[in-house]
Simulated scan of single mutants.
Amino acid sequence: MTYTLWGSAHSLYSGKARSYLIKKGLPFRERYPSDPEFGSRILPAVGHFVVPVLETDKGEIIQDSGDIIDFLEQRHAEPLLEPQSPVQQWVSLIFDAFGSEYLLPLAMHYRWSYRSEQETFLRAEFGRALAAGVDRATRREAAAQTMTFFAGFLPNLGVVPEVFAAMEDTYLALIDALDNHFQHHPYLLGGRPCRGDFGMMAPLFAHLGRDPVPAMLMKTKAPNLYRWTERMNAAPISDGEYPGYGEEYCDKDTVPESLIAVLKIVFADWTPGLKADADCFNAWAAHQQTGDLVSKSGQPQVHPNVGKVEYPWRGVTMKRGSAPHMLWMFARAQDLAAHSASEQLNGLIEQVGGQEAMAICLTKRIVRSKNMLVLD
């Protein structure tokens, strides 16, 4: 079986799905939305314009990078790309949600706040996804309107000049800690990647590791992290940079000390926004019914919001649209912890400052149905 990944090189979530397919060793071909078949077959099946989309040779269509991984994990047991012990599973889920959702505004900041410094590159990337078989000038021009549309997302993501410095300071601290970790370990949890690695690839490849301005920043400030983005797009599991390391997860459900340092940054940065999102969601959900679309507008959205949030963060005030999709992903780690009897996991949560975030409670459960978030 050869899968088809409908995506693009500059797409944040395509990077997550693509890396998984590569490391899983599954044969696939990647096709772009500029292909006429995307508009004639894939778009009607999904219901809205979005990538990535996975298509099987039997015509099955799966949208959402996380759903793609879940679908393929059920079909292909080997190679193992998820730890089997509770502490490491929890860590994997935390990094999956943190990378896929929390780092999205940072990725968009470095792409669009520095647009003028990387305009030609971005036009080429968006153009290749939109216009096939045309000359270079036409392709670049075709990209301009779509680029302006995506750049317009920044205010709703909370990315405004007043918070730029705080965002960039925390990003530098994060990539420095990750750089130290990847000097000693090929992947987050040892000798093979996990779901958390793929979640972190979402922002750290297409936007932060590939766009010219943030890519240069990563190369000069966190070269070991940049090398990890290359490793995550290479088929072999092992890497000769780590002789004798092996291809297993860390022993006895342990977490490397260097990753604990990263987790402390994760929860310090993430918790205020998670709490604000939960409060906003609970207030909105109080007036909704089971089966209702999770969207204040009542219209399908890839990243819906149910209102505005405002909270103090790193010496500034963050103001943005709420992020129920982030709450939905974070709930997987909460569910695992709630059903685990592991004292080791409880100890790790306390060690990294995660108790406050893990105690967040949603009054109604969010589920995914027909490519949309709805109330359970």
Rank of each mutant, 00 (worst) to 15 (best):
M1W: 01
S11W: 07
Y13Q: 01
Y20T: 12
K23H: 14
K23Y: 13
K23C: 12
G25H: 14
R31Q: 14
S34N: 00
V50L: 14
V51T: 14
L72T: 07
L72P: 05
P86V: 08
V87K: 07
D96F: 05
E101F: 00
L103N: 04
L106K: 02
A131Q: 12
Q145C: 01
M147H: 08
F153R: 10
G158R: 02
V159H: 05
A165T: 13
M167G: 12
M167A: 10
E168Y: 04
Y171C: 11
I175S: 03
D176S: 13
Q183Y: 05
L189M: 07
M201E: 12
M201T: 14
M201A: 14
D211H: 08
K219G: 15
K221W: 02
R231K: 15
D239E: 11
E241D: 14
K252S: 11
S258I: 01
I260D: 00
I265T: 01
L274P: 02
A276P: 13
A276S: 15
A278G: 08
F281H: 12
N282V: 02
Q288G: 08
G307S: 13
E310Y: 03
R314S: 12
K319F: 10
R320Y: 09
D335E: 13
Q351S: 09
L362C: 14
R365D: 11
R368Y: 10
S369D: 10
L375F: 10
